[in-house]
Design a protein around this nucleic acid. Structure first.
Lengths: 342, 342
DNA sequence: CCGGCTGTTGACAACGTTGTCCAGGCTCTA
DNA sequence: TAGAGCCTGGACAACGTTGTCAACAGCCGG
């Protein structure tokens, strides 16, 4: 067989390596490594020669190889529900800032509220050997992460607790927030209050419902089944739920909306009505001040920051039992929650 | 020196490798590789033994090593301005969806509108050997990416053009959108129209200003210097600008807001006033429909999707001259832009 | 002038995976 | 039943970097 030009089986578009730099600078491989990493023990003159070769060749260190050798990737993963949701943008940004302060990059992925996709994503991130993982759970069984955690992947859950596994967790006080919001409506004279929330398998949704029931019970008020609507939060369903609660002989006089998407749709639906209906929503919304919407605000950025800081403390070697915080929520009265019963 | 237990110099928390799996299954290393990658040429029985060993050890392939060997990382980088900005959330999500469809992960970073940070981030992503890069420029000189692009990193710029470099670019029609928005105000009888925008070094800001001037000129209207305010879009400055334009003997009767942040602040500032002022804003905003804000809407998700699709076509080997599209914008009349001059 | 010391440098192995290539056992055909 | 061909499996090198260690030069003090 004729000897064809021998080729390596692949190439990063033919990037120069440290070996190439070394050859050009007339020094050893390790010396280039030292210069690139700012390690001591290189004469100024040698360093200059190496730097010139780096410039001339346009060399950039291959972090993949570095990672393989060092065992740390300086990257963390964030699995959330939907990056396009205005609640998660600030959360992700906060995580990114903390990561940046620790010299790490952030890889994030959206689970679209699909447990399988969450798992697929989280495991893909583990295969990439992220140093740590922050997860906003979609599913309710995270045992699939046990081997990874044992193998050293620091993991923190945010916004919702992990399922069937012990782990660091950062939550907002959904129960207390909802309870306070509903109590606020009660204090303004409402006795028939509706609750529209997400599917109860979502922990925050269940907690908020629990808060609603607790507040009603605190006030000695009954809860009619027709006043509670749980399910996917797409507009059509929420509109229908609002309409249903406002129909009939004994309509609700106030609504508690279980999250930002529900609040937005409820406001739209109520805007077309004449009889005033009080409304308190969970989650703050941009421009809610102008629309006069009373909300239970949670601090998405603080959730992300807290989780990320915990993660990096773990990576710095902190070794203690799993830990759990609940960040407080704040009632922000803006008008819609202070409307008296019609 | 006493012989201490010999240790490898690092460990991923002691994860099993293919070698360990091979030993346990009593097969060769390469056979494990074949099973893990679903390659043909393995008997069902051998495969079963390997799978069992994988299960038992909790093995997960180390993608870092894989990347090193294969030269492709199946990941793309996205450098944007601020993930917490509601404009970039959907854009990022759209990119992520396309990446996912191609089996790639997305690493994103926020430049915080700082050119140096943009460069630092983009180069860090290149060092990670992302296959491709999508950049929303903060700076106006991207020659620093030339060596990377030559080395094979596919690169697409979005929302703003690259500086001093030829590359694929996806833009919104800022000029046309602003021109149409201002023309809309003119059509409703306004002659003194203010423009509040971002710093003119930002391409979109400059284009929108150009659109404003063009529309005024089209209508044969003069532009008073006092009607144009450019600078950082933080609330204090924007409020001051609005106040200044509405003061004096000949105040503007209408405002064109150069982006979503300006619009929001302008709405807040105008809410406290009695004399009605018409307003059209660039970028759509959640709940703008309820507030009756007329906007020039651009489709952030479409920007992201278009850019990502282009990126992956490049990665699939497309080899042609740099390319540039401008996606259209849409005028959405909702009331605030149809107010007649006071 | 020599022994030891410091400070610079490079050879080499290893990180965990995949591509190449060959060996050995099997089946099938003539 | 011998030879050809196929299928399965494994040994080995390579990807680009960093840690270890040893070699070597120059310097100082005795």
């Amino acid at each position: 067989m004729a000897e064809t030009a021998r080729r390596p089986d692949h190439r990063y578009g033919n990037r120069p390596t440290m070996k190439d730099v070394a050859a050009r600078a007339g020094v050893g491989l390790k010396t280039v490594s030292r210069v690139v990493n700012g390690e001591p023990g290189v004469t100024p003159d040698t360093e200059r020669r190496v730097q010139e070769a780096i410039q001339a060749l346009g060399f950039r260190r291959n972090d993949s190889a570095r990672v393989l050798r060092k065992g740390r990737t300086a990257s963390v993963g964030l699995v959330l529900e939907d990056l396009a949701d205005p609640f998660y943008g600030p959360l992700s940004r906060a995580v990114e800032e903390v990561a940046r302060a620790h010299g790490a990059l952030l890889i994030n992925g959206s689970s679209a509220e699909d447990p399988e996709r969450e798992q697929e994503l989280a495991l893909a991130l583990c295969a990439r050997r992220v140093d740590g993982l922050i997860v906003i759970p979609s599913g309710d069984d995270h045992r699939y992460l046990e081997p990874e955690m044992r193998a050293g992947v620091a993991t923190v859950f945010v916004d919702r607790p992990a399922g069937r596994i012990e782990a660091d967790t950062v939550l907002s006080d959904s129960f207390g927030g909802a309870r306070a919001g509903v109590a606020h409506l009660v204090a303004h004279g409402h006795r028939r209050i509706g609750f529209i929330g997400d599917r109860p398998r979502i922990h925050t949704a269940a907690e908020r419902l629990r808060g609603y029931r607790a507040a009603m019970e605190d006030a000695g008020l009954p809860v009619d089944d027709a006043w509670v609507s749980l399910g996917p939060t797409e507009p059509a369903r929420v509109r229908a739920a609002v309409a249903a609660m406002l129909a009939g002989p004994e309509p609700v006089t106030a609504l508690f909306a279980g999250n930002n998407r529900v609040t937005v749709t409820a406001v739209r639906e109520l805007a077309g009505r004449t009889r005033p209906v009080a409304l308190v929503g969970f989650d703050d919304i941009e421009l809610a001040d102008l629309l006069g919407i009373t909300v239970i605000a949670q601090d998405a950025a603080a959730l992300g920051r807290t989780a990320a800081e915990r993660l990096f403390r773990r990576l710095d070697g902190l070794h203690e039992a799993p830990w759990r915080v609940e960040l407080p929520t704040v009632l922000v009265p803006r008008g819609s929650g202070e409307v008296p019963p019609a």
